[in-house]
Design a protein around this nucleic acid. Structure first.
Length: 258
DNA sequence: GACCCGTGGCG
DNA sequence: TCGCCAAGGGT
């Protein structure tokens, strides 16, 4: 849930989820559409689908218990290098380099002396993070949480709170005079008129109704002016079906996957 | 490596 | 107002 989504927006949904589905096996029994609906407006609904798939994989391959092994975590749907390291470290006290956007920013500033990390994780960043990790697993796990929290609460992207930072006197970026970011501006994601907007509107319509929707009913829910061309909505619907987020029914009707 | 995938809040 | 950003992952 936290992938690319602020903690404050995740928290209320997460509380509902752990109460409704305390164990992976509880979620694994549900149809995927039920999980996608409960995801609500958190965004990137493929994460909900993969979380459901991960719950089923945990039941099938690990007897319903979240694995502690990094490689086994990494093999689960929707679990990449960051999440595998975060779970192994935070939940199981292991020694792993946890490289999320907060940690990368802290290292970029405090160690490398630049305002923002590169657009994508580099091997240099991975080496740096690994090299800084304390040797003892328990200390490494605490270190990982601490650096992440420092980035999330103090060394923030917009207006870092350097006055309250415990390492400001050692911060390479600070010592260099806080030079502004150089190089290409990081690319923002377009929204208006994109497939993502249309897909989001289609998913919102399908989440809202418990009953299957016909093709025309789906049209109504999509902002007409947003469509780039007449075929865009149909292509997006086909893409959602291809992704497993929508289930087509006989008679040109559609619903969340059952 | 480049690109695609949602949504909402904030400076 | 609007671009930026948010505990990334998959193809």
């Amino acid at each position: 849930m936290l992938q690319q989504t602020p903690v404050s927006r995740v928290l209320p949904i997460w509380r509902e989820w752990v109460q409704r589905w305390p164990e992976p096996a509880d979620m694994a029994k549900e149809p995927p559409g039920e999980v996608i609906r409960a995801w609500g407006r958190l965004g990137y609904p493929r994460r909900a689908l993969r979380l459901h798939q991960a719950a089923q994989a945990i039941v099938d391959r690990h007897d319903g218990a979240v694995p502690s092994d990094h490689a086994e975590l990494l093999a689960l749907p929707g679990i990449g290098s960051y999440t595998a390291a975060a779970v192994a470290s935070f939940a199981f006290g292991q020694r792993h380099a946890v490289l999320d956007t907060n940690v990368r920013r802290v290292f970029a500033r405090a160690v490398t002396g630049i305002e923002y990390p590169p657009p994508a994780v580099t091997s240099a960043e991975t080496r740096l993070a690994t090299g800084l990790l304390p040797q003892q697993p328990a200390r490494a796990a605490r270190w990982a949480v601490a650096v992440m929290e420092l980035g999330a609460l103090v060394c923030t992207a917009r207006s870092p709170k350097c006055a309250g930072c415990p390492v400001s006197s050692q911060c390479a970026w600070r010592l260099a005079g806080s030079p502004p970011h150089t190089g290409p501006a990081r690319k923002g994601q377009a929204w208006a008129g994109t497939d993502r907007q249309i897909r989001g509107a289609l998913m919102a319509a399908l989440r809202k109704s418990r009953d299957p929707l016909s093709h025309p009913q789906l049209v109504i829910e999509v902002p007409d002016g947003a469509l780039r061309d007449p075929g865009q909505r149909s292509r997006c619907l086909a893409g959602l079906i291809e992704d497993g987020l929508v289930e087509p029914l006989p008679g040109d009707h559609y619903q969340l996957p059952g």
